[in-house]
Design a binder for these strands. Sequence first.
DNA 1: CTGTTAGCGCTTTCAG
DNA 2: CTGAAAGCGCTAACAG
Lengths: 337, 337
Amino acid sequence: MDSVNLKKLAQILNLSVSTVSKAFGGSYEISPETKNRILALAKELNYQPNFYASGLRTQKTKTIAVIIPEIDNNFFTQAINGIESVAQEKAYHVLIYLTHEDYTKETAFAQHLQNGRVDGVLISLSDGTKDRSHLDLLTKKNIPVVFFDRVDEEAVATRVTTNDYESGYAATQHLVDQGCKRIAHLYFSKNLSIANYRMEGYLQALRDNKMPLSKGLVVQCTNDNKTNFNLIRALLSKNKRPDGIFSSFERLALHCYEVSEELKLKIPKDLKIISFSNIETAALLNPSLSTITQPAYEIGRKAALVLFDALEKNTATVPNEHIVIKSELIIRRSTTK
Amino acid sequence: MDSVNLKKLAQILNLSVSTVSKAFGGSYEISPETKNRILALAKELNYQPNFYASGLRTQKTKTIAVIIPEIDNNFFTQAINGIESVAQEKAYHVLIYLTHEDYTKETAFAQHLQNGRVDGVLISLSDGTKDRSHLDLLTKKNIPVVFFDRVDEEAVATRVTTNDYESGYAATQHLVDQGCKRIAHLYFSKNLSIANYRMEGYLQALRDNKMPLSKGLVVQCTNDNKTNFNLIRALLSKNKRPDGIFSSFERLALHCYEVSEELKLKIPKDLKIISFSNIETAALLNPSLSTITQPAYEIGRKAALVLFDALEKNTATVPNEHIVIKSELIIRRSTTK
DNA sequence: CTGTTAGCGCTTTCAG
DNA sequence: CTGAAAGCGCTAACAG
């Protein structure tokens, strides 16, 4: 392919390559006249500056990476939407990396991204992530990193989350208010700070209501749907089964519905469910799930804005702060008597 | 940042840059001994080859672009998952571009991608797309393009879709079988070939059942939720309102539920609904929506595989064929009597 | 088996 | 206001 590049434009116009280049940079040392000639020809020939050449030269790529555990999840989908909206405004490009909750993959991605492929990184940690050295490497290479949702609490960086503790508390309190006596909690992982905060909110709400804390009612789930299903079936098959469930993860709540159907439990009569969830569509379809709905779009946007701020200031360090955007507690029929 | 590059490695080891470079290429003209020395040092210093330099040199980027109308949509989310699974296998990177159904944006993305940023493109057209010249440009620049779901029928390229006509037929037939006499169809756009096929299936099913075709029962929706809601409310408020709805788009079906709630219509007694949808979660939550569920993951995977095939063969032309992966008709309580 | 050299397309001093 | 030249980091032809 005889692609059209600066050299070609220069040849046709009898100008030097550097002159042509400057014209695109909008430099004021080029006469308006030649500038117009250049831009006109460029348009005509549909010139597109070679991305790799300019990237190599300037060390700026106009690209960010988004590393997330999974994409088949409404929270992350909406977050990407928010991130992308900012990227479009700033004329940046977005690379997506899915870890599938695999810490090894996360490390590999981060390692790879050190090669200067991107200007900055937005990340939501995968479950297994304990060590953050792979992310420190990025910062050392002048690539700023911003965390969202599943953040690294120890990181000296910006961390954007929702108010997990309060939400966990409110969700639990709601179940208490609806008369639940045995409230179970389903969570995803001990490694995730957000999961811990949600659980702390749950525990505190129980304490404040003088309700007994029972280990059997707190179920740690896994990354495997089948296992989770079985755990939940075990929970709901007990003699003294729970009459309320606070789930910190969308998919776990869905299993509760499946299991309830199997065990012929009536929702909300026998069991009231409230869950962190961003399935707005499901809520529309069925008013039987109360939710704590995270402002995923805004979280994504905010995280992206912080990152772009650093990029514009040309610094790899991002403010060391925790930004909280509040979730919404949406009560639906399921959990009212 | 004194980043570690080939030159540095070469200096430290007292070798030439090209020798070091070859070592990474796995070239057999390098002695195993020096090769090991080089690789060892590279590992120690955590060397990452500069992406832009090698991209510039080789004109290969190990990156593909995925252009889709929106991401807050389970079909596309699952498709991305499929695409990404192949990309990971092939060690490719994935850039995401969201057109938000805006043809202008789609064109701009395609224009931009001519600059060699990616090796290939996967695209699902936005609603407004009529002219495909922006995509032809890519092919001309040796960048293969594969279509999925919302394909360009005229394009001389691979087009991966589901069996839209048959599915439309089957969905309609199902409603007929359930006793519906006035079956409405909601569709998204005349410009989309898949929408047309779905509608043709619907029309043919009505004809085959000797049911009258009524223009008032076929509603073309828009890209705006509010407008769609109003259109559907108008449809369901009619004197002779439909008793069955076949929706070709997930979100339109959801509006039917909203409107039904408002108008106090009972589902499925007063109204049976079947829709194209990939909300597995919603289906779990509520068994009241029958669906035609597209194999989004497989469609994404297949499209990606075709693209990578072309990339591996180093050709910009992709087989001119239409690949069909069948959808699944999932009948749930809503549409049985 | 290793080194020299040229150049991918662009930006950016520095000279004119 | 315009041009010449160097070089970003890498690869690949060609010599040795």
